[in-house]
Amino acid sequence: MKKKKLGNTELETAPIIFGGNVFGWTLDEKESFKMLDELLDKGYDTIDTADVYSRWAEGNSGGESETILGKWMKERGVRDRISLHTKVGSDMGQGHKDISKSYILSAVEDSLKRLQTDYIDLYYTHWDDDKTPVEETLEAYQKLIDQGKVRYIGASNLSAERLQDSLDAAKAKDLPKYQVFQQQYNLMERDDFEGEIKTICTANNVGVTTYFSLASGFLTGKYRKEDDFEGKKRKSFVQKYLNRRGLEVLGVLDEISEAHQISNAGVALAWIMNRPGVTAPIASATKSSHLKAFDEAVSVNLSEQEMNRLTEVSKK
C-alpha cells in the first residue's frame, strides 16, 4: 500500500485514516480490538482519535476512545507500528472549548495516560476557543515538542483567518507550524474546505485530512428514506441529506459503483482521495465487511469523466 506524506513532516499515512470516534460508542472494547487488529493486518496504520471521543455516548464522560486505543496498543505491543493522532481543546465537560497554554499542557498528560504512551505523533487543536492568542497555543505545543511528548501539530475546524494567523505567527516567531489541517469534506459537504481554507493549505504545504468523509454513512447508500434511519444512532447526522440533491448524488454513485463492481462507499472515498489538496480521508467502520470499501477506494481508478460527474452532481 502506497503511503502519503503529511505536510512537511516525517509522518506517512495509509491512503485512508481510520476514525477512532467509534471506539467506546458504536463499538465496545472487544469489538474495537477486533477492528483494530484487522486494520493493522490490512496496513491501515494511522488512527485518528480525540480526548473528547466518545463523550456523547450514554454513560460516557470522554476519553473512552483514547482509553480503548491505548489498551489495545499496550496489549498488542504495536505502539511503534501506529501513527497516532489525537486532539485537544474540545469541551470535556468544563462547559467550554479551551486552547490556552495551561489547558493544553494539562490535557496532554491525561491523553498520554489514557493512550498508555509517552508521545503523540500528531496533536491537533480540535476546536478554536476564539480568544486565546495563537502565539500562546503554539508556545504550548513548542514545549511539548521540546519535551518529546508531541512530534508534530495540526489543527481542525479553525476559521481561515485564525489558520492564517497561526501560520504567520509560526513563521514570524519561530514557533511550531500546523502541518496538517482537518476539516469536514465529502460529496454532500464541500463548502467548509473548498475555497479559502484549501487555498491557505495549498500555499503553505499543509496536509489535509477530511472527516465525515462518508457524510456520517449517508454516502454508503443505506439511507434512502426516512424509515432507514429511524432508531439509528446516526439519525441526527444523516437525515438532513435526504433530499433531492442527496438522492441525485446517490444515483450517480450507484451507476459508478455498478460499473466498477464496488460499493458506493468505495467510490465516495476514492473521489475524496483524488480531489486536489486532500492528503487522505478519515473514515470509520463498525464491521469487518465495511473495511472492504477501504480496499476498493485504494485500488479503483476513477476516470476523469467519473470524477467530473461526481463533482458536478454534488454542487449545491
Rank of each mutant, 00 (worst) to 15 (best):
19 G>W: 01
155 A>S: 15
159 S>Q: 09
14 A>P: 11
212 F>E: 00
108 V>A: 05
93 G>Y: 03
125 T>R: 03
257 S>L: 03
247 L>Q: 14
136 E>H: 08
277 G>Q: 06
12 E>S: 10
83 S>D: 01
81 R>I: 02
308 N>Q: 14
43 G>F: 07
169 A>F: 04
27 L>C: 10
157 N>W: 01
220 T>P: 03
264 N>Y: 00
194 E>V: 12
214 L>R: 04
207 G>W: 01
65 S>T: 09
65 S>A: 14
116 Q>N: 14
124 Y>K: 01
292 K>V: 14
36 L>T: 07
185 Y>L: 06
69 L>P: 09
19 G>R: 01
265 A>P: 09
311 T>W: 04
152 Y>H: 14
315 K>I: 07
169 A>D: 04
107 A>F: 08
69 L>T: 11
204 N>S: 10
303 S>W: 03
237 F>V: 04
38 E>I: 12
221 G>S: 09
226 E>S: 14
113 K>N: 15
220 T>H: 06
47 I>V: 13
155 A>W: 05
222 K>T: 13
128 D>E: 04
57 A>D: 06
306 E>G: 02
234 R>Y: 12
89 G>A: 03
275 R>A: 00
143 K>C: 07
185 Y>W: 07
162 R>K: 13
192 D>W: 06
94 Q>K: 10
170 A>M: 04
32 S>G: 03
33 F>V: 05
135 E>S: 13
271 W>H: 00
90 S>F: 12
16 I>D: 00
8 N>S: 13
209 T>E: 07
79 R>Q: 08
283 A>C: 15
58 E>Q: 12
63 G>W: 03
216 S>W: 02
183 Q>K: 03
166 S>C: 05
138 L>W: 10
114 R>I: 13
28 D>E: 01
229 F>E: 07
291 L>H: 11
264 N>D: 02
129 D>E: 05
52 V>D: 00
263 S>D: 02
144 L>S: 10
164 Q>E: 13
140 A>K: 08
314 S>N: 09
177 K>H: 12
257 S>P: 07
131 K>I: 12
24 G>V: 09
